[in-house]
């Protein structure tokens, strides 16, 4: 359940901040964010800031890499495994 809430928070953030609300409903937790160019340089920085500031996850340097930012599911696991919590749980 906690993971689902983190996934939800990430989806909402990406939809509202990067995809103009995603009106076509294309974003899922398995959308390849890097491969499809959803996360460019600026947006990656925004997302890392959101994870740190809003979800409270302290990502260690060795986990700050592209493979952990492939899709929302992998990012949620990164958040959860590093002490992050869904916004509603804080």
């Amino acid at each position: 359940m906690a993971d689902d809430q983190i996934v939800s928070d990430l989806l909402v953030f990406i939809r509202t901040q990067f995809l103009d609300g995603d009106p076509a409903g294309e974003l899922t937790d398995q959308t390849p964010l890097l491969a499809w160019g959803v996360l460019d340089s600026f947006k990656t920085a925004r997302l890392v800031g959101f994870i740190h500031d809003e979800l409270g996850s302290q990502i260690p340097p060795d986990q700050l890499n592209a493979s952990n930012f492939q899709d929302v599911r992998s990012i949620a696991e990164l958040v959860r495994s590093n002490g992050g919590q869904a916004k509603a749980a804080q």
């Binding site: 340089s41 990656t44 890392v48």
Partner: peptide
């Protein structure tokens, strides 16, 4: 690591 990730292009 942040620079490598964010500025990867």
């Amino acid at each position: 690591k942040w620079v490598d990730l964010v500025c990867r292009d």
